[in-house]
Amino acid sequence: QELQYSTHLPPSVLVNSAGVEKVFDLVSKATGGEVTAKYFWAGQLYDSAGNFDAIRGGVIDTAFTQPASNQAEMPVNMMFSDLYHFGGDPYVTAAAVNATILLDCQSCRDEYAQANALFLGAHAATPAMTVCAREIRSIDDLRGLRIIGQQAVADWIGHLGSTQLDVPPPGQLEALERGTADCTNISPEWLTAFSIGEAAETIITAPIGSQFATSFMTMNSDTWAGLSDEAKTAFLQAMPQAIAAIVDGYVAADEEALAAAEEQGLTFTDLGGAYRQELDGFLSDYASRAAAKGEARGVADAAAIVAAFQDNIAKWQGIVD
């Protein structure tokens, strides 16, 4: 049985090379070659919104999807974008988001089911840092700048008194070099992956949160129902291994990128703890604000989801420590 996998990301990114291919390799091995994969990388077929549609229509068996691309249809799962700043240690965050969706949040799973889809697992990116193309010595140096960040950090950038710009990763180097933007919020890996290090001068080392509101293995429900029990078990066993491998890869890539940045002579600073302090102040009522945002979108059990996620973070923090 050949399963088609579609993603808008190119084959070289870790989610694909360390995650997706690993899942299918493991499943293929475990089923003695009964299940194989055909990959459509880099949007060869669909962009990220299109992949979700293709899963729903049964056109594709498995795909990378993200709630942000189909916001009206995934208000519950959008909650995990609103919880961005709770993202920390990627092992803990990844475990917590999967535990929340798979064990604690029936409405999250219902949303996938309504789209004829099944959530099999999410990874978590490593925490983002604020990287600037100029010298930053104090929190005041950050005010009034133009800072690149996704919608999830818009409030934080606004809180700093700065302007949020939405620039896709491939355009960020140019924006920083030309001065269209002053700073960006990125996983350190992007310093090399998107050459952003070439324009950077200061790296503020205080982590601000991470992206984990994605699903790199969304499966069509009928496809799942048609799998043998052996294959189903193989998928469920492969997922945690693949998620760990992705996170391992990101952690290593981050270390490498940060070492290169240090060699390059970039300034590393936490602004004497001031950045973290400012962020903590901003986050004092973050959980209740996130729940309110969810409720405004019509998510009935928003507060319960936030609480479950926080519990899972605490629980897995303990396990990892």
Partner: peptide, 18 residues
């Protein structure tokens, strides 16, 4: 330069855009 296809290539091939 500048060049949109070069940026996409650099991303694919993991080389520096610069």
């Amino acid at each position: 330069p500048p060049s949109i296809p070069m940026i996409i290539y650099a991303y694919f091939a993991e080389v520096s855009v610069g």
